[in-house]
Simulated scan of single mutants.
Amino acid sequence: MNGAASIPLPVAALIGVCLVAGAFLALMGAIGLVRLQSFYERVHAPTLGSSLGMMLILTSSVLYFSTIRGELVLHEILIAVFLTLTTPISLMLIVRAALARDRREGAPGVPPLEPEDAS
């Protein structure tokens, strides 16, 4: 027998809701990656899906293991910190690289580089 049988029903329901909602957000991010048209639209959906979905899934993990062990378990916070820091940074780097490439190639619809102030 594992410890899952000893979880109270309200806590199990909260864990299930967080887990399903997080999985749904991650799925929506994946669907957005496939369905959106341009590269610049596509990078937002998985980023938001992974950030919000990750937070809910890690919340369910914290609740589950804290209930099983009978003490507060916060190992997942380290995962959340790393993903919260690296996801937006990698998004900005990828978009800036694509924007520089599109400007160099003269792609239509790309905003021009703003001139620097001469003051």
Rank of each mutant, 00 (worst) to 15 (best):
M1R: 14
G3D: 14
G3K: 15
I7L: 05
L9Q: 13
L9Y: 07
L9N: 08
P10Y: 01
P10S: 03
V11Q: 08
A12Y: 05
A13W: 12
G16L: 05
C18F: 12
C18Y: 05
G22A: 07
A23Q: 10
F24R: 06
L25Q: 10
L27Q: 08
L27G: 12
M28N: 05
A30L: 14
G32E: 04
V34M: 11
V34G: 00
V34Y: 11
L36R: 15
S38Q: 08
F39M: 07
R42N: 09
V43E: 01
V43R: 11
H44R: 12
L48H: 09
G49A: 12
S51H: 02
L52T: 07
G53N: 06
M54I: 00
M54R: 03
L56Y: 03
I57F: 06
T59N: 02
L63N: 03
L63W: 02
L63P: 00
Y64G: 00
F65K: 05
S66D: 04
S66E: 01
G70T: 08
G70F: 06
E76V: 11
I77E: 05
I79Q: 02
L83G: 12
L83V: 14
L83I: 13
T84D: 04
T84E: 07
L85C: 13
T86G: 05
I89C: 09
I89F: 12
I89Q: 08
S90T: 15
L91T: 15
I94T: 15
I94G: 01
I94L: 15
V95R: 14
V95Q: 09
A97G: 05
R103C: 06
R104K: 15
E105G: 02
A107T: 03
P108M: 11
P108Y: 08
G109C: 03
P111Y: 05
P112L: 06
L113D: 06
E114C: 07
P115Q: 11
A118F: 09
A118W: 08
S119D: 14
